[in-house]
Design a protein around this nucleic acid. Structure first.
Lengths: 248, 248
DNA sequence: CGGGTCGTTGACTCTCATCAACCCTCGTGG
DNA sequence: CCACGAGGGTTGATGAGAGTCAACGACCCG
């Protein structure tokens, strides 16, 4: 139902973990929203920007980063369809980081008051939103653990696992492939290692048979082996369905 | 008002960022709750545990960690009075990490349904909770950035800044001091470096005049210098008041 | 054809991990 | 009273993983 509705990714995401009645789904899809389109390299959100409205990513891939005093970029998260780019909070709250599009990205902006009102009316929707935020938080903690103390290969493997989960509805499997939405520079900034070392590590992973590469296409012959190296926990990702069809 | 009520830390935290009427505050304080007391070293939450109720830390200091396959401990966050140890979500959701007490810790457990119902009744409370969760998320992202790509001194400086903010209601200032609630082993696991290197780095920071140490007492002669090294952003911490009085 | 971004590789350096030993303090118990 | 052990802290020697610097190649697009 309503698969071609713009807000479908939101409903799918909320429905993945919690029970939403047909009525809940209709109500969500009926939320008034504005749509924004951002091209590759464009900023979806900028640091310091006032948070006006609840941003839900509809399609495409983006990353979230901060710039340190010495100009280094730290990527602190990846975003895909259905992701909440902020919480429904009211100004004068401002964004602490940049969200930058890697591909073409569509975003829906819902009035904060509208989603808060809806949460008050419908317990099931409030519950679903809480569940989704909890999963997001768990993923952020996984990133802390990932970049904190682990060797380069494990960090990159983890990032690959996350990208696989984001682009394959059913999760990873032997023989699956992804097209990296990001350059090796981006991978470096997301894993806290240098581009030179990313390059060498990818090569080493290929030598070890963990991945096969052709340009930005990554083939994963043994999904279990990759997750073991990455110490990837699928829990927060389970039943997260992603719908990334081409734009209308 | 109600300063000596057990749930006062919750009201203070929620009131720090949002406007809560006297009536809101009374309603929050009237929430039914169970209290749990955990001694130093005890687990407040264990990995895999079913999340039953909304956990709010009332006093003490705790840390949140994960154990990797090779047995290494990764500390992914610190917790103090007023912190939400989980979101109000319903089973079968389980905890992804351990929360372990460093000092004696008191926790209030509120029925998930009770706080959800209250959020539905009172927009101001829902707003306040969203604001607090958003600040927590920002802090997690800061951790990702902290442990990702920075030298040992900066990582430790950041952790010290956070501990200062947690124990000084008004924020840090020249000449302030803290008593570390954690050993150097804990600092190592929270910053992703080894204990040996933590020790050497603390010594170096002392040589440079960034800190003075006596056992676990840390004196900070120049707060601005420390935050500059740490690239510490006070924003998510602003007006976060902490009340860590002795237990009744 | 030229310029830009991205990817690749080599040589050298350095931070930090590893391994190992030793100290201190404190609580316990003979 | 002292022996003992455990946890935490300190220090040195050595090595490995990753950073830095530099150059070059591949590809895309105007």
């Amino acid at each position: 139902m309503a698969d071609n509705h713009a807000l479908a990714p939101l409903v799918e995401r909320l429905g993945a973990r919690a029970q939403l009645s047909a009525d809940d789904q209709r109500t969500l899809l009926a939320l008034p929203y504005q749509e924004r389109l951002v091209g590759p390299g464009g900023y979806v959100v900028e640091e310091g920007e006032l948070i006006m409205g609840w941003h839900i990513q509809l399609s495409g891939v983006a990353h979230r980063h901060r710039i340190s005093a010495d100009g280094l970029r730290h990527i602190v998260g990846m975003h895909g369809p259905g992701d909440f780019l902020n919480l429904p909070i009211t100004p004068p709250a401002t964004s602490e980081d940049f969200v930058q599009a890697l591909t073409r990205v569509r975003v829906a902006i819902v009035q904060t008051e509208a989603i808060l009102a809806l949460s008050q009316e419908r317990l099931s929707i409030l519950r679903a939103i809480c569940g989704e935020i909890a999963a997001d938080i768990s993923i952020y903690r996984a990133w802390i653990s990932n970049v904190g103390r682990r060797e380069a290969r494990a960090r990159i493997a983890y990032l690959l696992c996350e990208l696989v989960m984001r682009s394959h509805p059913g999760g990873g499997a032997d023989g699956c492939s992804i097209t990296l939405p990001m350059s090796q520079v981006d991978i470096a900034d997301a894993t806290g290692i240098t581009t030179v070392h990313v390059n060498r590590t990818l090569r080493a992973m290929q030598m070890q048979g963990l991945i096969r590469r052709h340009r930005r296409n990554i083939h994963i012959p043994d999904w279990r082996a990759l997750t073991r190296i990455a110490e990837f926990r699928p829990l927060p990702w389970t039943s997260r369905k992603v719908d990334d069809r081409a734009m209308p």
